[in-house]
Amino acid sequence: MATNTENTTDVTTVERFFDHRTRERWLRRGLYGIAGLLLVFLWIPLAVMVFLSVAQNASTLFPFEGFTLQHYAATFSDPGLMMALFNSAQVATVAACIATVLGVLASFALARREFPLKSAFRTFGILPMIVPGVVLGIALLIYFRTLLSAIPVVGDLFVPGFLTLVLTHSVYGFPFVLLIVSARLYTFDEQLEEAARDLGASPLETFRDVTLPIIAPAVGAGFLFAWIRSFEDFIRAFFTKGTMDVLTTAMFSMIKYGAAPKMNAISAFIVLVIAILLAVAMNLGNVTQYVAGGPDE
């Protein structure tokens, strides 16, 4: 119907124009409608959960028995859960530090150096993100438990526990730092560094005064992402944590064991914390670019 543009008279052009406008409008509305429904889909379960976290009857909406903050009080006075939260924060911090150091260095290699097998190196670097958690978790568990633990003297270090979990998460967090920081370095004008060097700055000074300030937000965002990934990971931790509990595994047993009130409260609390962290990370840089798609071509 829209193919006969060539031979139309003025009148039909006008008609078509209106027709086009109406359709355009409806299409746009439809698009907005779908987008709105999607956001509802994304948010509804979380909203219900947040609501239930302050509801007297914590397991379902009906019958509604009034609001309370007692679930929060009970949650934050649960020593086991708080210990797990503390463990999670510790593991995430150490693991994200390792991932950040390694990731920043590797980003320089990607952005600044030419070397054989560079694309293999890059693929290798993002692999921890691609390998499903079950596979990575089991592979590391078997590796630590059956292979490394058998080594005399140092073997004991690899009995599943704090260290093995940190190692696991340092690997898992690495790609996030790599992608974010290398993306930043690709857009970075190398001539700035050369100029600094020409003006007599040492490599170290150049790095400190020129390079670092420019990549700092990306490094910060990379660290945050690696941190969040470690903090929210369940399945890898499930296999390599030993008997130490981190927040996700403690929550998993809570769900299995039916502790809905505390679960709602701690979950709602996490949504809040992540919201703040994410807002910070988004202000540190263009998150969407880091999260999807590669470096700027």
Partner: peptide, 22 residues
């Protein structure tokens, strides 16, 4: 006291070297 939620987990953690911790 470390809480566990299943016998099989107790067994597998001991068998993975944590027998030295407990």
């Amino acid at each position: 006291i470390t809480k566990s939620t299943s016998s099989s987990k107790m067994f597998s953690s001991w068998n993975s070297g944590q027998n030295e911790q407990y």
